[in-house]
Each structure stands twice: as C-alpha cells, then as structure tokens.
Design a protein around this nucleic acid. Sequence first.
DNA 1: AAAAGGCGTTGATCTGTGTCAATCGCGGCC
DNA 2: GGCCGCGATTGACACAGATCAACGCCTTTT
Lengths: 256, 256
Amino acid sequence: MSLTDSHHLACVNVDGISPCATCGARALSVCGSLAEDGLRRLAALADDVAFNPGEALVREGDTAHHLFNITAGSVRVYKLLPDGRRQIVGFLYAGDFLGLATGDHYAFTAEALEPVKVCKFRKVEYRRLLHDLPDLESALLERASHELAAAQEQMLLLGRKTAQERFASFLLDTARRCARADGEADRVHLTMTRAEIADYLGLTTETVSRVTSRLKTTGVIRLLSLSDIAILRPAVLQDMAQGNPGQARSGGSTAG
Amino acid sequence: MSLTDSHHLACVNVDGISPCATCGARALSVCGSLAEDGLRRLAALADDVAFNPGEALVREGDTAHHLFNITAGSVRVYKLLPDGRRQIVGFLYAGDFLGLATGDHYAFTAEALEPVKVCKFRKVEYRRLLHDLPDLESALLERASHELAAAQEQMLLLGRKTAQERFASFLLDTARRCARADGEADRVHLTMTRAEIADYLGLTTETVSRVTSRLKTTGVIRLLSLSDIAILRPAVLQDMAQGNPGQARSGGSTAG
DNA sequence: AAAAGGCGTTGATCTGTGTCAATCGCGGCC
DNA sequence: GGCCGCGATTGACACAGATCAACGCCTTTT
C-alpha cells in the first residue's frame, strides 16, 4: 500500500550519494557481501539500464562483454536448437546475477519478462574489481555453487520426473522465490506465460494446462487469476514434487 | 610410449618433494593455476585417498566436510527420488573437482566407476586457503562457470532432445573429454554401463541400446567392444547432436 | 459495442519411449 | 574347455505426453 520510492531503487550514479545505498535488491544479491568502500567502487563501474518486456539483455552467440545484476523485474534465460525447440534454463528475479555461465560468448539468450532494471558491468572491469575485492569473489563463488546445485536439481526434474511432479516442483520453487520478495508463502505470482513454463519444464503448453486443471480439480491449488495461484495444500504439493507415491487415489486398496 | 612413473602421480606427502610435482592430473585441474608456493600449501592440506569401483566418495544427505580433486579414474554423480528413480548429473574424470555444488550437506552421491584416486581436502581448511590464494579462488570460479554452462547444455538435452540426439551428444562429449586424456579423437572409451548412460540421458537401457544399434546399422559408429566405440562419421553425429534434420535417409527426396 | 487477436483450455488421436519379457553373448570361474 | 551369470540386445505391447484441432475468455482496438 505505502507508496515507497521503490522506483528509485536502481543504482543511479547521483554524485555524493552511494547509488547502491537505496537499492532494494542489494540484500538479495552479491553486492550484499560488500562493505562501504567496496560498494562504492562497484557502484562506480555500474551502468544502470532498463529493459522493456521482450527486450533482450544478451543474445546467444554474442561476444560476452557484460555482466548483469537484476535489480527489478524478471527475466527468461534460454537456449535454442536450430529447428526452434527452446529450453528455458532459468528465470531470474531481483538480486540474481546474469553472466556466470559465460565464456567468450554467451551460450544463452536472456530476455525481460516484465519491465526490468539491471546494474550492468563491463566484464573486464568487473574482473579487475574481483581481483581487488576477495569478498565479492567469494560471494560470486557461493552464488555459482548454489546455481550449480539448482541446475542439478533441474536435471533430476527434466530427466526423471513426470509432468505433474515437474509442475509441482516449479510451483513450490517459484513460491519460495516470491516469498523471499513479498512474504506470501502460499501465494505464487507468475510473470511468465504457460508456453514459457512448458519450455522450462520440458513439456508443452497443453500438458501444463492439463496438469494445472487437475491440481485445481483435486483442490491442491486455486487459480486467483491466470498469473496468480493460491497453494491450498502445500504438503500434498510437496509430496508430488519429490515424487512420493501420493495417497493412491485417496482411499485405494492398501495391499493385496 | 615412454613408461613414465604415472603410477606415482597421486599426491603422496613424501618429505621434501612437492607431492603435486609429479601429479599427472595437475595440468587438468584447478591446481594448475598455482605457483610453487601455493602448490606446496595446497599439498600440505591434501589427503591422498583411493576408492574401489562402486565405493562412494560422498553420499547424498551427508554433512559436507570434504572436497575432492579427481586424479585418476572416473566417477558417477547422481541424485535419487524416493522411489528409486536415478538421475546421473555428471561423470567426473581426472582433473575434475567434486564439491562445488555443495551447501552444508551433499545434494548428490558420488561413486567410483573404476579404481579412483583423489586429493581430499577438509572443507574448512580449503576455504581458509582460498582466502589466501586468490588465484585458486579465481580458477575455481572459472571452473564453476564452465560447469554451469555444461549443466545448462544438459538441461537443453534433457528437456528438448530426442533419444538419438541425446546419445549423439553424449558420445561427442565423452570423445572430447577422452581426447583430452589420450589424444584419440574418434575413439571413445566408456567407463560406465548402458544403465548409467541411460540414467545420465534421461532414458532407459533399452532405448540406449536401440539407438546404439541404429547408429551401428547406419554406419555412423562401430562397436569395437561393449565399452569402446569408433566414430566413423563425426560430421553426421555432430548434426544429430545439435538436432539438425539429418539428410533424410541418405538420398531421400529433396523436395515435394 | 463490435471486431480481432492472443493466450489458455479442452478434446481426440498419434507416437516416441517406457515396460515387460525373452534371448544373446561376453567374461569370469571352476 | 565348458558352465554360469550379469549386462546388453531385441521384440511385443502399453502409455504418458505430444500433436492436431476446436473453442473460450479476456484484452485491445477502433
């Protein structure tokens, strides 16, 4: 309700004021590890940029000159096969870092889902700074470790989970990330379309839609709108996500 | 050809001699970034351990006290669902680092495929060392970036590629890693069973077997033995791996 | 307010891969 | 050298999810 000045949270380089001081994403991102001095040096390198929905932050194949810290909005990161098949490898939110998994060229495309704000850095300068700020490098390594663990979890999902298990996992995961932002644990706000969810989960829109309907019918979730879902039975969803048997059609035979 | 003392390549802490000096895996691993002094300090922390085939280096859920550098042999890293479904998230070879994607507890199990040798480190001590050796931390971050990129590539494979495309990708990937070791580009040595390949590619043994047979029949590969494959037509395999259409049954109609 | 377009849902059918079941064949062991 | 056993292969069939198709709903445009 309160009209905070959250519109000003991006790292605008106003003279005399540490631009990051008012950045709402700082606590969530790697900059959170930095003290006053380091933060100022980082801010000096930061270029504040905004993207409209659909705009590309980076494109697969482009030379990787920049790194990004998402400060507002959400982003889809994906890879394509020559015939157009798409795999979304992740969604990014405020506080997330873009550019870790990068060699000389970007191996993925990143596009804004909503209006997005970022802190943009030249890679060479950032590298130099990393050299001087071991805390930042540690934080980045920490971040990379978490992302790697998340990636392995996603491999388990894509390689071995059923459509329903995938969707349940996705919902809980997204809920957790949203909770981080707005505290609502059992309410999920989706910033992406069904097609994008499908391309993230290795499914089709139709299958995502059918699974959603089933969960709605069975009273596990409720659709408040197309992009807002209430989780009515978190425990059931959790069991699904982990691939637990589920109470065999609610009352089925317990044993031969 | 020369009978090197490669049997001594493990980091045995013999007094006066830098144990890593003769380590054949050094050039391939993060230690490669270290100078004489750093190497000596690293070696001081290293515990040299061997594992027999099937033995576990770490188990999913265990408290993560150690980190590992593989110096010889190969390792499977996997995650399980409660009902036994398995996803192998990677195979490790000499030079690879184990323990990056780790919080307080291991999120995966790692087991030897062959007789394995490792340099084992206590995590706390390693962290302290990282603090003192920025070169090592950089190398580790670099390594993590590559692994993350590889993980994203694997997500594309698991989410969007067909069985044949998956197997082609796997073969080329493994060939590349083996080439690194023994220079044979078009010959692949597999240290894992069909079931393990299947669990890595999100398939079943039967499907892996069928795809192998098809590639054999079409003259793309040749089986020298169960675990040794010669790649006869690398270009064709490459097209398959990337999901390219393939020359429609070698000489099919070019257009309606 | 009517038209139009895009996204989402639902239904019917198809298919790639999984499942179940023999059989094969290499490698180890007596 | 012959037997044994496990992993690999091959075949028949089943099924989850893809594909193709129609329709509904909501939002935008004029």
